[in-house]
Amino acid sequence: MYQYIAKRVLLTIPTLLGAAALVFLLMRLIPGDICLVRLGGGGGSFDPKALIACHAEIGVDKPTIVQFLDFMWGIVRFDFGTSMWSGKPVATEILARLPISLEIAILGTAVAIAIAIPLGTISALRQNTWLDVAVRIFAIGGIATPSFWLGIMSVLLVLDVSAAITGTPWMPPIDYVPIWKDPIRNLSMAILPAITVGYRYAAVSMRMTRSAMLEVMREDYVRTARAKGLVAKLIVNRHALKNALLPVVTLLGIEFAFLIGGLVVTEQVFNLNGVGRLFVQAVQNQDYTLTQALVMLTVAIFVFTNLLVDLLYGWLDPRIHFA
């Protein structure tokens, strides 16, 4: 298995380099100039000499091929450069945002698992009953509701309900504090986005759990287990659910990877200073170095999450071997 893991990790290197080269070229195809955005974005006057100085400072006055070679050489040395916008190392910029994105991703996934697996299972076991219909409506609601709307509504709901109860509107904090510094403040900020994200995420997973369970429950080995006289709870927990979880785990893995860098709207609605917001900001500002690093981070997260999911398959289904 270790050989398998090593091989998969090594395979990520060309993937990352290819993604880096592609995003390097694509970013330069977008019309615009980071120095112009920086100096002229406010609609005010600026000195043309400042524009030239800005180009020289961030190195965009060099020929593209030289910039590309500098960039690739930096990657080889694990030096992703400095943000063209802030002048800070891109690693510093990303690490400042990663904890909040990671926390929301983990909490969102926990919420999703807590909702999706029990409800999906119940829905499958009670197929075509009122319970099944209710769960399916709940799931479709989650898929159909845009997360920005849900986010805005949840904040407004909290404000209105708190105003109605206490006479003073209350809302969660809008600045992030790490959980180890102030757990209550941290969780009060993170809980609404986690529920907002988790609901949508749960809705998709719930439907997947339901259909996988329905399929597994019709398998021969489940019928055999029933014929042996095993109690229903044991059949579901030990035999059916574990096997039904294979596609659900795949989905959870993909969604988790997406949550790290893809929570653009949720991060904006809840004023979370996360990786998704940084991504949009970097593209809008045409910050090439930061965008390149973020794309590579996203690719790496997807690759490693997929690897983790593959390893989980082996635990869930002992017939799967890694060679």
């Binding site: 404000l159 509107p169 904090p173 600045d175 904006q268 609605v269 004023n271």
Partner: peptide
Amino acid sequence: FNAIFAPKQQTRVDAIRGDRA
């Protein structure tokens, strides 16, 4: 003072309403 970056107008309106800022 604490100055918080908040790019979305709706967030800023909510934050004033909830006295977070």
